[in-house]
């Protein structure tokens, strides 16, 4: 599996990463060398093997439905880049 320039552009867009024209060849090359490393696993047969998502065979714990969080807007917004009237500001959202 080998990526070309348009694959790299598509992936960068999905990941919302701006990518500068001169960087594309370098990204393409390094991603391809990583993918060829990764592709070594394709030779190993894994039919019928249950995928392992979590190392421990544990199950989800449940939280009781009790309010534990008080309003902390001021401290939580202290590091926000743009806030007005308690709202986070972003460039216009078009529906």
């Amino acid at each position: 599996m080998s990526l070309d320039r348009s694959d790299v552009e598509r992936i960068a867009h999905l990941a919302r990463l701006a990518i500068h024209e001169p960087e594309i060849p370098e990204y393409t090359e390094s991603l391809n060398s990583i993918l060829s490393l990764i592709d070594q696993m394709q030779a190993t047969p894994t039919d019928g093997i249950e995928p392992l998502a979590h190392p421990l065979d544990a199950v989800q714990r449940l939280r009781s439905d009790v309010v534990t969080e008080a309003n902390q807007r001021d401290s939580l917004q202290a590091c926000a880049p743009a806030v007005e009237d308690g709202l986070f500001l972003v460039p216009k959202v078009i529906e």
């Binding site: 939280r63 439905d65 969080e69 902390q72 939580l76 009237d85 308690g86």
Partner: peptide, 26 residues
């Protein structure tokens, strides 16, 4: 429910903006 699906913040409707959004919700 009284609280969010994954956090202990209240789900009550109509509160001031972002006063019911805890660290997990943000």
């Amino acid at each position: 429910t009284q609280t969010k699906i994954f956090s202990g913040a209240s789900t009550a409707f109509g509160a001031e903006p972002n006063t019911q959004a805890c660290a997990v919700d943000l």
